[in-house]
């Protein structure tokens, strides 16, 4: 869910340039790369603010104070639980970016299971693993001013938010569903033409309706849109022939930690014959 922005960032006091920090918690670095891939725009950004911490770009000062703190990754370890508090206390705007930071990310799948059992079954010496029982969104631990969802975020989405903040205005929080973007681009609906279990009708856009444009059903990377009719869509997938566990899995990609998706995953797992996902068919049915 996109968060409505709070107050605009007041202009920096004039004696110094605004400071930008890019933090990382449990994540794959893909969102940092989305920003790093901005190319020339990154140089323009560096002309308007001081980038005080951005590990992917080789700038390291974890404890720097910042006007804007982009945070990638979920809170998954005791150390991160401490660190997000420290980031909060040193930053004026905390902006979680990406599915991990806004909803827990793929690692939040463990929230639906018993994380300790998983750790025990994977690692020969589980006592060395320091992990919280759940992988949480940043907003579950500290107040945030704006959320930038996506897996990964799009470069343009991050640049637009930063450009607006640096201009002293409230960044726009996207609320449209992927379907609107899909239709604006003149793409042919994969759900209607191929029964593909597309999450576009419940997912907030920001990706440019990328997957339907390539003939794939939307995976819901950007997470639930406002007013997401998730139970209605899940029922539609079942009516189109998806088995209950396959319906559940559609909601268990990067955004399983987002409340409406998590609810659908749990509801449809319960309806599966043995109460848990088996291996009956791929979650990606409906593709040739």
């Amino acid at each position: 869910m996109t968060t409505p922005p709070k107050a605009p960032l007041p202009p920096a006091d004039g004696r110094r340039r605004p400071r930008l920090a890019v933090h990382k918690l449990s994540s794959c670095d893909g969102c940092q790369l989305a920003l790093l891939n901005a190319g020339e725009s990154l140089l323009a950004l560096a002309e308007r603010c001081d980038i005080v911490h951005f590990a992917e770009a080789g700038i390291l000062d974890l404890d720097a104070e910042a006007d804007i703190a982009l945070v990638e990754g979920s809170v998954s370890t005791p150390e991160e639980r401490e660190r997000i508090q420290a980031i909060r206390s040193r930053s004026r705007w905390v902006v979680p970016m990406g599915a991990c930071a806004t909803a827990g990310g793929p690692q939040a799948l463990r929230n639906l299971a018993d994380a300790e059992v998983w750790i025990g079954s994977v690692y020969p010496e589980p006592q060395h693993i320091q992990a919280l029982p759940t992988a949480d969104a940043v907003a579950a631990h500290v107040d945030v001013e704006l959320s930038l969802p996506g897996c990964p975020v799009s470069t343009q989405q991050v640049l637009d938010a930063l450009a607006t903040l640096l201009a002293g205005a409230s960044p726009f929080a996207e609320q449209d569903k992927v379907c609107m973007e899909c239709k604006r681009r003149g793409q042919v609906c994969v759900l209607v033409t191929r029964d593909a279990p597309c999450l576009g009708p419940v997912t907030v856009t920001g990706c440019g309706a990328l997957c339907p444009g390539l003939g794939r059903a939307c995976y819901g990377c950007y997470g639930p849109a406002e007013n997401p009719e998730v139970p209605t869509l899940a029922q539609r997938f079942a009516d189109l022939g998806l088995a209950p566990d396959a319906v559940a899995r559609r909601f268990m990609f990067q955004q399983s930690g987002a409340e409406p998706f998590q609810q659908a995953a749990q509801d449809w797992r319960r309806r599966a014959p043995d109460g848990a996902p088996g291996n009956a068919g791929s979650a990606e049915q409906g593709h040739d």
Partner: peptide
């Protein structure tokens, strides 16, 4: 689903919104 597909394909619907691209 409140997805808006009906509006998008309807040949008579005319509503629009505006965005800033800074």
């Amino acid at each position: 689903l409140a997805c808006g597909n009906c509006v998008a394909v309807c040949p008579t619907c005319f509503c629009s919104t505006e965005r800033e691209q800074p």
